[in-house]
């Protein structure tokens, strides 16, 4: 149908369409080139890295860089630290945002508005503004260079509370809550068992946002951690790249390892991730 219609268009339009598509495809290839280039570089050895102009694919394929990367740095340890950090952060942000958002949306109590305005007002303050005092607070608690010190600031998210409040207002009907109360369900059971089912799409979008936020966190781990054993992937990789800055093959291999989980996740959860990002982005 579309094809038939397109063929009925004048020749000039069809040529124009072809040119636009070709340009878009060329642009698209440029967009993925840096990612491709990391893969390509990671598969070649030193002499080939200095060839000018560089060849698109390695002349001699090798996995030697990967073997070396795993022995030179605890890459799997970094990976594990990142997974633990992002998971703990996501679970807590989901919990705190859903509970607070639901309560702000559905309960009348003295101070409701004032507290929510406080959350809203601080939602625009970026992390970089208060990181110095936050560091001093963690120092007072003796949490410098401790995993807990890394995790703590990532247990709540202003935007998450705002986002869940908005979604509770639109997708949790009062009638349903009242019906559950008449049936004798307690408030806690309603909130923890019934409400999450209604909020599942919003919660999964928020989970994606929270996970990405923790996974890509950089400056806070850099400030609070000294012991490379507890570095998450992003920080560990940047330090690794700094110490082996001239060995491009080795650095690329480590970078490929660091990218792998994201690429795999994207492959399987593409639609959900894109929808999640647009959902959380647009309500900002």
């Amino acid at each position: 149908m579309t094809k038939a219609r397109r063929n009925r268009r004048p020749l000039k339009d069809r040529i124009l369409y072809g040119i636009v598509v070709l340009l878009l495809l060329a642009g698209g290839l440029i967009m993925v080139f840096p990612i491709f280039w990391l893969f390509s570089t990671s598969l070649r050895l030193a002499p080939e890295l200095n060839v000018v102009p560089p060849h698109l694919l390695p002349d001699h394929w090798t996995l030697a860089n990967f073997e070396k990367a795993f022995t030179k740095a605890p890459l799997l340890g970094y990976m594990w630290n990142s997974i633990a950090f992002a998971t703990v952060s996501t679970v807590f942000i989901l919990l705190t945002s859903t509970i607070a958002g639901y309560i702000f949306a559905k309960f009348k109590f003295p101070g409701n508005n004032a507290l929510f305005m406080l959350v809203l007002a601080t939602a625009i303050v970026p992390f970089e503004i208060y990181m110095v005092p936050l560091f001093l607070q963690m120092k007072t608690l003796g949490l410098i260079d401790k995993p807990l010190g890394l995790f703590l600031p990532f247990l709540v998210m202003s935007y998450g509370i705002f986002f869940m409040r908005q979604n509770t207002q639109t997708s949790v009907p009062d009638e349903l809550l009242d019906a559950a109360r008449i049936d004798g369900m307690g408030e806690a059971r309603i909130m923890l068992l019934m409400v999450p089912r209604l909020l599942a799409p919003a919660m999964s979008a928020l989970a994606i946002l929270a996970f990405i936020q923790a996974w890509t966190a950089f400056i806070w781990p850099l400030l609070i951690l000294n012991n490379p054993k507890s570095f998450p992937m992003e920080l560990g990789l940047s330090q690794f790249a700094n110490s082996f800055s001239v060995d491009f093959g080795l650095v690329s291999a480590a970078a490929v390892v660091a990218m792998a989980p994201t690429l795999i996740a994207f492959l399987f959860l593409r639609r959900r991730i894109v929808d999640g990002i647009t959902l959380t982005g647009l309500k900002g």
């Binding site: 990612i35 990391l38 570089t41 940047s238 790249a241 970078a255 490929v256 990218m259």
Partner: peptide
Amino acid sequence: VPMVPVTLG
């Protein structure tokens, strides 16, 4: 893709 690996690319 996370920022650090692509910056290295």
